[in-house]
């Protein structure tokens, strides 16, 4: 009997020790200075050291930008914990309008039904433009024929009616070779997909379905890199990181061929595939000093953050608008 009990208690103790040591490992570990200089707030305009949590969720396209902002910000305010989730633009708004997050990342403006959901819960917000993106259409390095595509040609490839019919490049333009057309792109949950289908096919969400969809843009990169007749699209950041492997196509939106670049996206000539990226802070959350401080930091250093994370920075006009919008928001 006692032997049995001893065994039981030995096992129980082992389990508790394992559990506790894990738990203690969590509580006792002080976060080490991630990149050396994270401690000791350097230059503080406002002064006081803040604490608290800022919850951000939403678009996975905007997440790297907000994450970079959070990382820079932690060097200044080490005790403010900024978390960034990637539920997607739609999923982010769902949580935001339910009052579960402070800021929502979005790669498209808020939709009417999402506005209604926010109104129903009494969540007020302001739209802030934080960066520009140029949706980039990419082809294989060996593709010598497609240097410039018109919006109509892209539509011919991607419209729902093209399914199983448009399978070769020479169906797009008789001058193109008879090379099988292999299409890659983001999945239907993505804000990038919504934007591309809206601008090219004229209706949000309308696309042929027989392409290779992936939420992971690396898969699109590999797909286009691996097939001579491959074509895909994603955000400009992704193209910049993979510029050695792929070729970007110039887009003719009716005013001649324009290549995607920082300049053409900033001045708006890269039409119709240049788009704005947004964050939506909630008016109630901005009243909390840590949220206000984070947004201040974000807006003041927006171009440093954007350049560092390889986003297309705002132009001077957009930048002053961002600062003015934030100032108005804080007085509300």
């Amino acid at each position: 009997m006692t032997r049995g009990q001893r065994r039981l208690s030995a096992v129980a103790t082992a389990a508790i020790v394992v559990g506790l040591s894990a738990a203690c490992g969590g509580t006792n570990t002080t976060p080490p200075a991630g990149d050396g200089a994270a401690s000791a707030p350097a230059s503080q305009g406002a002064g006081a050291e803040l604490a608290g949590q800022v919850k951000v969720d939403g678009s996975s396209t905007v997440a790297p930008l907000t994450s970079a902002a959070a990382e820079f910000f932690s060097e200044e305010q080490a005790k403010v914990n900024v978390t960034v989730g990637t539920s997607g633009t739609g999923g982010g708004f769902e949580k935001f309008c339910n009052g579960e997050t402070d800021i929502s990342n979005a790669s498209r403006p808020i939709k009417d039904e999402e506005k209604a959901a926010c109104d129903a819960k009494g969540v007020k917000y302001t739209e802030l433009t934080v960066a520009t993106d140029a949706l980039t259409v990419v082809v294989n390095k060996e593709n010598t024929w497609a240097t410039c595509l018109t919006v109509d040609q892209l539509k011919k490839m991607w419209e729902p009616g093209a399914e199983k019919k448009i399978t070769s490049w020479n169906q797009i333009d008789p001058k193109f070779p008879n090379e099988p057309l292999k299409l890659f792109g983001p999945g239907t949950d993505s804000g990038t997909f919504d934007y591309f289908t809206d601008e090219i096919n004229g209706e949000e969400g309308a696309s042929r379905k027989d392409y290779s969809p992936s939420e992971d843009d690396n898969v699109t990169v590999q797909g286009v890199e691996g097939s001579k007749g491959g074509l895909g699209y994603f955000g400009y950041t992704y193209f910049e990181e993979n510029a050695a492997k792929l070729k970007a196509v110039e887009i003719d939106g009716g005013k001649g061929c324009v290549a995607p670049s920082v300049e053409t996206a900033q001045n708006g000539t890269y039409a119709p595939l240049a788009r704005a990226l947004f964050i939506y802070p909630s008016t109630a959350a901005v009243k909390r000093p840590e949220v206000a401080a984070f947004l201040d930091y974000y807006a003041t250093n927006i171009n440093k953050i954007a350049t560092d994370s390889k986003f297309i920075p705002l132009n001077a006009e957009q930048e002053s608008k961002l600062k003015a919008d934030l100032a108005t928001l804080k007085t509300q």
Partner: peptide
């Protein structure tokens, strides 16, 4: 856990059962 708000970017250890 994706449904349950496990975030993709966090620079803090959890400090309790109600932490992110």
């Amino acid at each position: 856990l994706i449904m349950l708000g496990a975030v993709s970017f966090i620079r803090f250890n959890p400090d309790g059962i109600f932490a992110s």
